[in-house]
Design a protein around this nucleic acid. Structure first.
Length: 567
RNA sequence: GCCCCCGUAGCCCAAUGGAUAGGGCACCAGCCUCCGGAGCUGGCUUUGCAGGUUCAAUUCCUGCCGGGGGCACCA
């Protein structure tokens, strides 16, 4: 709905601008060519500046060497003349303000259509064709199955899932994928960690190395094997290599199950779990190295095999096969990304933790070595979330086995609050997560503030009786109060907000949007009564608040937060 | 050594290069005969420093200061 209006206005503005340029005596051909780049359309902060605004004239002024206000007046005059007689034009009025801003006011009908659209289409409200059905592979979390998920993974999961929803609404075809590092060094260490704990239980004296997994859960896993008589019997008959294999496979399977359950309880579901082991078994690593070698991006030095990533802007070349013959993480990763492209995805989005940010240049290099544009891969770095409890930061450290888990946060503050809080800051900014605030059921807590607005509307609609049934035939022209207009504008802005989120590959903007929408509703509610003896006005207001409810619900759903009818 | 994030009011944070830099907390003063007071209204004080690009910089670039975090033939 927003997108439809936006595209219409863009067309009208472009046409008017072209006519204006044609009317000038001599204009460099650049002016017309750059039009698409400089034609911005924004929702201004101040309502006196219209529903939508463009600084097109300011940008164009320099190119055509004219006064910005003059340019604005020229374009506005043509635009007004063009849309005056045309019924399909959404423009009610255009004003020139400030240095040369073109401020566009939309017809009331646009907003009435909007309300009817929202109340009819409900869950579809907010969807657009921005993504042009492009296939996107969104890979996130992808934590090694060597322990329960941490708070860092929790934020990545919240961001990834919400972003998937944002992109789906924006018209992309999104697949959510978890890359499972189920072999390699860390997994071998996991197997050995369990074995050592097992030996310990059998009474053997062991030396548990620092770089092994220290967590309690390793002991629990070992104990489960030790206390099961048939299993213990079976293990005693295996040789050392077979034992290691058993410990490793058992550990991965159990921990993977833990991770999957945690994510499911967090409301995050993946479409694909992609195994590194399977990738390797299919020979894709050798295949991609051969492919790169043929293209001249592979060489040997110091006994190791190197990928010439400097060719594509990386600081230094990177080892893909170590001098001991084993692969680095990079080798299967290049193979994995090649496979993503081969599965038909045009756009790859990876969500990584901050410990991987130095990894971006080499992965971008790999993508280019595979013959793709470097923009075919976007990497989003999710900065760490620091937990606070009563003003004190809670410690987190993956290696020491002393970290706060997703499970703990989930248990303490619940799914809705935790998912919302993880999204409250820009994804690549640090986030302080206040556990006490997240648990509070007051207006200080933004989740409750928004959900309360939703529940409040549900309460009114429930109390409206038969008046609510005929919502789409209401006379919306009765909505004339300032707070009513503010609400309609806020609903209109939903599509704009989603578009910005999709373009920035960051869902966090929705959290502030929803807070302001809820605030606009509470303000309206405080000043005007929905249910009144005036049946027509009641009908119109019911239509309005129902549209608010749908918008809140859609926004919350995108973030993975529920929208309760009662609280 | 290299890299990433952040410096906005007493505190926490907004602002896709735009117009008078927004909101919350706290503080002070108000609002229930009325659809949920988990709400609303009014008041108060701000862009770390120095340059640069631009018609326009909180935003982009360079340097510095301060805070947080990360990286090495680990994943």
């Amino acid at each position: 709905m927003y997108r439809k209006i936006e595209l219409k206005l863009r067309t009208l503005l472009a046409e008017a601008t072209e006519s204006y340029l044609a009317s000038l005596p001599a204009v460099s051909p650049d002016a017309k060519n750059t039009l698409a780049d400089i034609l911005n359309l924004d929702i201004p902060k101040e309502k006196e500046f219209g529903h939508l605004s463009t600084s097109l004239a300011l940008r164009l002024a320099g190119i055509v060497r004219k006064n910005p206000k003059e340019v604005a007046a020229g374009i506005a005059a043509i635009l007004k003349a063009d849309s005056a007689g045309e019924k399909s034009s959404p423009i009610k009025d255009i004003e020139i303000k400030g240095a040369g801003f073109l401020n566009i006011f939309l017809k009331d009908e646009v907003f009435f259509d909007l309300l009817r659209f929202v109340n009819t289409r409900e869950k579809d409200f907010g969807k657009s064709d921005l993504g042009q059905a492009k296939r996107v592979l969104l890979e996130f979390v992808s934590a090694n199955p060597t322990g329960p998920l941490s708070v860092a993974h929790a934020r990545q999961a919240a961001v990834g899932d919400a972003l998937a929803n944002v992109l789906s609404y924006a018209g992309y075809l999104v697949t959510k994928e978890y890359y499972l590092n189920d072999e390699g060094n860390q997994i071998n260490i996991l197997g050995r960690s369990i074995r050592l704990r097992y030996c310990e239980l059998s009474g053997e004296k062991i030396d548990f190395p620092d770089d092994h997994y220290q967590g309690e859960y390793i002991i629990d896993l070992a104990r489960a094997l030790w206390t099961d008589d048939p299993t213990r019997e079976k293990i005693s008959k295996l040789d050392l290599k077979q034992r290691d294999e058993l410990f490793l496979e058992y550990g991965v399977a159990k921990i993977l199950k833990v991770i999957q359950d945690e994510l499911a309880d967090f409301g995050v579901n993946f479409d694909v779990w992609y195994s590194q082991k399977v990738l390797g078994k299919a020979g894709k690593i050798e295949e991609v190295l051969g492919y790169l070698k043929k293209r001249g991006y592979i060489y040997e030095s110091e006994g190791a095999v190197w990928f010439k990533s400097t060719e594509f802007g990386d600081d230094k070349d990177r080892v893909v096969r170590k001098s001991d013959g084993s692969y680095t993480y990079l080798a299967p990763d290049i193979a994995y990304h090649k496979d993503k492209f081969e599965r038909g995805y045009e756009k790859l989005v990876n969500i990584w933790g901050p410990d991987h940010h130095g990894y971006i240049p080499r992965m971008k290099a790999a993508v280019q070595a595979l013959g793709k544009d470097k923009d075919a891969l976007s990497v989003i770095i999710v900065q760490l979330a620091t937990l606070f409890r009563a003003g004190q930061p809670a410690p987190m450290s993956t290696r020491k086995g002393q970290y706060v888990t997703l499970r703990e946060v989930l248990t303490e503050v619940g799914r809705d609050a935790s998912r919302f809080f993880f999204l409250m800051r820009k994804t690549d900014s640090h986030l302080d997560f206040d556990l006490e605030l997240a648990k509070k059921q007051t207006s200080e807590n933004p989740v409750y503030y928004i959900q309360y607005a939703h529940a409040r509307i549900a309460g009114i609609l429930a109390g409206a009786g038969p008046a609510a049934a005929d919502i789409n035939n209401a006379d919306l022209s009765l909505l004339k109060e300032e707070e009513e207009e503010d609400l309609m504008k806020a609903i209109f802005e939903f599509g704009y907000c989603l578009e910005v989120c999709a373009k920035q590959l960051d869902p966090y903007g929705l959290t502030t949007y929803l807070q302001s929408l809820a605030a606009a509703f509470h303000r309206f509610y405080d000043r005007h009564k929905v249910l009144s003896p005036d049946a027509d006005l009641t009908g119109a207001r019911l239509a309005l608040i129902r549209a608010v409810k749908v918008t809140l619900a859609n926004g919350l759903a995108i973030l993975g937060v529920s929208s309760p009818e009662r609280m």
